[in-house]
Simulated scan of single mutants.
Amino acid sequence: MGRIKRVREFGDPDYIRIDQAVFKFNCCEDAVRSIAKQCDAQRKVNGSVFYDYAKLKRYFDLSPAN
């Protein structure tokens, strides 16, 4: 019999980095940083900055389209 592989389920990540946020939400780094501070989505861990994906996504989904 073969080995059973555990398949990781892909979905939305919990936290993302600034370069991933810029790509996902199609805006500049300064905009992501200011929005993350406003909606309390910024976390600092050992000198690295991570952003709560769910909070940022909710902000961009609920903001009016320009």
Rank of each mutant, 00 (worst) to 15 (best):
V7M: 07
Q20Y: 01
E29P: 07
R3I: 08
V22C: 05
A54G: 04
D40H: 06
G2W: 03
R58Y: 03
K44P: 01
N26W: 01
V49E: 12
D40W: 00
D12K: 04
C27H: 02
S63N: 10
V45H: 08
S63C: 03
F23H: 10
D30N: 14
I35K: 02
R17V: 11
D14F: 04
D30F: 01
K44S: 15
L56M: 10
P13M: 01
R43C: 11
R33L: 12
V7C: 04
S34A: 07
F25P: 01
Y51T: 13
A54I: 04
F60Y: 15
F60M: 12
V49I: 15
Y15H: 11
S34C: 09
K24T: 09
S34R: 15
R6N: 07
P64T: 08
S63G: 00
F10I: 14
A65Q: 14
R33I: 09
G2T: 08
D19N: 09
L62F: 04
Q42E: 13
C28A: 07
K24L: 15
N66D: 14
Y15P: 00
P64W: 07
C39H: 06
F25Q: 09
D40V: 00
P64L: 13
P64N: 04
D61Q: 14
D12E: 14
C28L: 03
K55V: 03
A36Q: 01
L62M: 12
Q20I: 09
Q20P: 01
E9S: 02
A31S: 13
A54K: 11
L56N: 10
G2I: 04
F25D: 03
D52F: 00
F60R: 13
Y53C: 05
Y15S: 04
R43F: 13
A21H: 06
D61K: 09
K24S: 14
F50Q: 13
E29Y: 03
Q42T: 08
M1P: 05
K55S: 12
Y59D: 10
N46E: 15
I16C: 08
D40E: 07
E9C: 05
S63E: 11
I35V: 15
R58V: 03
D14R: 06
D30C: 04
D40G: 02
C39W: 00
A36H: 01
I35G: 04
K55E: 07
A21C: 15
M1C: 11
P64V: 07
A54T: 03
F10Q: 11
F25W: 12
R43Q: 13
I35D: 06
V32P: 00
L56R: 03
L62A: 05
A65S: 15
F25G: 00
Y53P: 05
D30H: 05
I35C: 10
K44W: 02
A41P: 03
I35N: 08
R33N: 13
